[in-house]
Structures are given as C-alpha cells and as structure tokens.
Amino acid sequence: MTGRPGSRWRGTCRSSGTRTAPAPRRPAQPAILVVGGVHDPATPLAWARGLAADVDGSVLRKRLDDGHTGC
C-alpha cells in the first residue's frame, strides 16, 4: 500500500515490516545568486538590483571590491 505523492503518510515496508519515512521535499527550482559590484563601472550595481527584483527567489550579494572583476 502506498500514500499519495507528497503526503506525509508513512507506509509499512512489505519485506521487513519496518516503517519508512517520506522522501525529503526539494524546492521547485534552485535559488539564483545575483552578484553586483559596488564599484563596478562595466555593470553597475543598479543593474544587479534590477535583475534580482525581476527573478523570483533570487538573492543579491554585493561585492565591495574595485573594478569589474575585483582584481
């Protein structure tokens, strides 16, 4: 006997009679990391902020290094 997919029902293993836990739930999609440089003249931080606002579930991280690549 099985439970519905996604239910919290715990079934009994037919071979050993032990109880089994449901499979862990995974997010529908992975989080998107948007990185923006505070002092980046090529791709301004405002662009990173805008992208992060447009992408659901994204996370914005600000780099404090100078330049485009932080070198």
Results as ranks from 00 to 15, higher is better:
67 G>R: 06
49 R>Q: 15
57 G>M: 04
39 H>Q: 10
38 V>E: 14
38 V>H: 13
61 R>G: 01
5 P>N: 07
17 G>E: 09
60 L>R: 05
53 A>I: 01
62 K>S: 12
26 R>H: 09
43 T>K: 03
12 T>C: 08
9 W>V: 15
33 L>Y: 02
15 S>R: 14
64 L>F: 10
69 T>N: 05
7 S>L: 03
40 D>E: 07
23 A>L: 15
17 G>Q: 07
3 G>F: 06
44 P>L: 14
67 G>K: 04
59 V>G: 01
48 A>Q: 07
4 R>Q: 11
55 V>Q: 09
46 A>D: 15
10 R>M: 15
23 A>W: 11
37 G>T: 03
2 T>S: 08
59 V>A: 05
27 P>A: 09
42 A>Y: 07
21 A>H: 08
5 P>A: 11
59 V>N: 00
50 G>W: 05
40 D>G: 07
26 R>T: 12
33 L>R: 06
38 V>Y: 10
14 R>C: 03
27 P>V: 03
65 D>G: 02
60 L>M: 07
48 A>H: 07
32 I>H: 06
59 V>C: 01
30 P>N: 04
68 H>Y: 07
67 G>L: 05
19 R>P: 01
44 P>T: 13
26 R>Q: 12
39 H>A: 11
66 D>R: 10
10 R>F: 04
3 G>E: 03
6 G>E: 01
